[in-house]
Amino acid sequence: MLELATELLERVRRRTPFVTATVTRVDGSAPRQPGASLVVDADGAVLGNVSGGCVDSAVYQACQEMLLGERGPEVLRFGYTDDDAIGVGLTCGGTIELLLRHHDPGVEPDLAVALTDAAQDAPVAVATVVCGPDAHVGRMIVVRPGRRREGTLGDGRLDEVAAARATGLLHAGTSGTVDIGVADGYCQEPMTLLVECNTPAPRMLIFGAIDHAAALARMGAFLGYRVTVCDARATFATPDRFPYADEVVVDWPHRYLEAQRLDGNTVICVLTHDPKVDVPLLTAALRLPVGYVGAMGSRRTHEQRLTRLREAGLTDRELGRLHSPIGLDIGARTPAETALSIAAEVVAHRLGGTGAPLRTGVPIHRRAAPSSAALPSVWTAKHLDHSAGITRSRPSSRS
């Protein structure tokens, strides 16, 4: 839902009711992950998607029915094998579970708080009870950094543990479900929370104002990074040359880097391959808790660079973090192709990909850690005539 914050905030301000269908669980192969949403408002407009094909059509119809009936939260579950998925529109097979909720902006002030923060790209999490006692299902709290929270799940102790779990996912920058068991002492029946997180865009720092940097800045922006291009040469480091960068900085790269507050999602790409720039810059970068550090250059340049970095005091462990020569082997020649090679390695490193061709049998969609809870009991069977395999249930306690 938070990925649609700007559009939903407009509905909230107009007090237009809407229904969200949010992915809460994925098993096997499926294209969207927990937190992805499809929204239908009272005017019939559709935002987002949860898979594509006739699955989205079925979800759209269910959302329309909920808008008309203003029912309480419901669960939809879609499950197919890979063999028959194409025929019904769930293009990747697997199983997805969604929570449908009717939202009335006039009586949900906490929702406006969450959407406002997310629309401004501020860190915020929404924790919603998606499975558990009827009195709690559908309730949500809004959590901000420092475990500041708005709203309630219906119990103060439950709010505290939910805020703690949500804060953990917010710090990790990921959405997902968490289970709270009776043994935890916070609830009388097991509960499952969906925690949707919005975190500021990760940063990509590109050092070296060259043509390859312009292409990489465009690729980084496409992938959702906040891109900075930095070079000490004012003649080359100009906004006109890097229209896709969020900022262009004229400064010595190592000095600029040392003044930044960075985190584990930060990507650093060094494209200068000039020893007087590379050595102090990489010495600083490889000692920072960032997610990725790569440097451009030939293999000969790389070996010479390693010698200089060792002389500067870097350890083998620190040097082991360096991706150099930067990028994956895709036969790149042009700046655009090289940017694609670098971006592919960045994504593979972040998500644990191998970089191997998918035809070799590597997983297409890596499986998220499944919930330990069982699926809810089904209270009505087939949802639509053309949607065999889709079930609906009340989001009650797991059996």
Rank of each mutant, 00 (worst) to 15 (best):
F222C: 09
R77D: 13
A388V: 06
R241T: 00
P133C: 02
C269N: 05
S51D: 02
A312G: 05
A119P: 02
L90Y: 00
R317L: 08
M191T: 01
E150D: 15
G53I: 03
R287W: 07
T301F: 12
V142F: 03
V182H: 07
I86G: 05
S396T: 02
P376M: 09
A214P: 11
V50L: 02
W379K: 10
V75Y: 04
A21R: 12
A259D: 10
L358G: 10
R157Q: 10
R398H: 08
S399E: 11
F236A: 04
L115A: 01
Q61P: 13
Y244H: 12
T334Y: 06
A312H: 05
F242R: 08
R71L: 04
A201M: 10
D104P: 02
I141W: 03
E7L: 03
V279N: 11
E3S: 02
T177Q: 09
V248A: 10
D84S: 12
V249A: 00
V182L: 06
K276Y: 11
D263S: 11
L271W: 08
V279K: 10
G138S: 00
R15C: 00
T391G: 11
R300L: 08
T20Q: 04
D84C: 14
A374Y: 10
L216Q: 15
A343L: 15
Y60W: 07
S51H: 06
D184K: 12
V248Q: 12
T315E: 11
D263K: 08
V19L: 13
L47S: 08
L194Q: 02
G168Y: 05
C54S: 11
V346P: 07
V195N: 07
P73H: 12
V129I: 01
A162I: 01
D56P: 13
Y244A: 15
T235H: 03
L99C: 06
G313P: 13
G355V: 07
V113R: 09
T167Q: 14
P34E: 01
G176C: 05
F242L: 09
A388N: 03
T301G: 11
P73E: 12
R394S: 14
G94A: 12
G294A: 14
I268K: 07
T192S: 02
V55T: 15
R398V: 04
L286P: 08
P253T: 01
T354C: 11
D83A: 04
D27S: 09
L100C: 04
E65Y: 15
G146I: 04
F242C: 06
G297A: 06
A312R: 09
A135C: 05
T338H: 00
G352L: 15
V347K: 05
A336Y: 04
A356W: 13
G176A: 03
C230E: 06
L100N: 00
R144N: 08
A232F: 02
R101H: 10
V346K: 02
R157I: 02
L319T: 10
A163P: 02
H323W: 00
A162E: 01
E318W: 05
G154V: 03
G154I: 09
